[in-house]
Write a protein that binds this DNA or RNA. Structure first.
Lengths: 131, 131
DNA sequence: CTAGACCTTGCCGTCGGCGTGAACGCCAAT
DNA sequence: ATTGGCGTTCACGCCGACGGCAAGGTCTAG
């Protein structure tokens, strides 16, 4: 399988695959003419990468997973390093959630304060008491 | 007040203030020698910028607020454009929260799945039944 | 033989918010 | 007069994950 086919099957660009190779995430064998050659296991690796990136991991953080896969494990998450990355990422997500929650509260408070300031007379009863 | 003093009082770097000026967020008067001169209202503007950036707004998004302040309004959020930015940011934060929440669920699921796979025999009863 | 569809390497561009350094000017104190 | 501590502009660097383009090589079909 050449780079174009792998790219299409994995749903990424050839440029991205070359980028992964530059990072050492996706080492490719070469044919005599210099073309990169990939196998099914490379498709599995790229799929793993994209899934993890979709969960917010950086490319560097996917490294333990792809190495775990290449080491022959059934899942990229079968190795201790991968588990550690999962834990760390989960902690980061929790921190982000906490921060975003606080930000949300503050944003809403500021928004309502600004709205109150611009509409200083909220007369609800008057409109209700028209005969 | 020169740039160094404003920077210190606002808790930012002089470089940041020059950057804000480049963006047109913080226009500065100049003395005869070319030095930038600032007043108390500029400190208010920088404080507003930093507060909003702390809430996750980009510098561009703070523009309506600082312009609102310079227009003489008591608060940077007194103008319609600022309110709109608040609303939009709140929506973005809500979207991020939803996404992050889903990511968290998925991350935890993957983590637990990986842990189960690595510890295939969780014998709780055995340890409990020792006499 | 040639078109065109693929592949290669290499290198610059993007986005935001500045950091950092060069090379220089201004001013008060010693 | 000089030192030191301000200020100025200019311009590149950084981070991540590629996009895009140039200039060329390779293979297949007609």
């Amino acid at each position: 399988m050449r780079i174009g086919e792998l790219a299409e099957r994995a749903g990424v660009s050839p440029r991205a695959l070359r980028h992964y190779e530059e990072l050492g995430l996706l080492p490719a064998r070469r044919r005599a003419n210099g073309y990169r050659t990939y196998g099914e296991e490379d498709l599995r690796a790229v799929t793993e990468i994209r899934t993890l990136v979709g969960l917010g991991l950086s490319l560097e953080e996917t490294r333990p997973f792809v190495e775990c896969l290449r080491a022959g494990h059934p899942s990229g998450a079968s190795c201790a390093d991968s588990i550690a990355v999962y834990r760390q990422k989960l902690a980061e997500v929790d921190a982000s959630l906490a921060r975003l929650g606080a930000v949300r509260v503050e944003l809403e408070a500021q928004l309502h304060a600004a709205l109150r300031e611009r509409a200083p007379v909220p007369r609800c009863e008057l409109t209700l008491e028209e005969p």
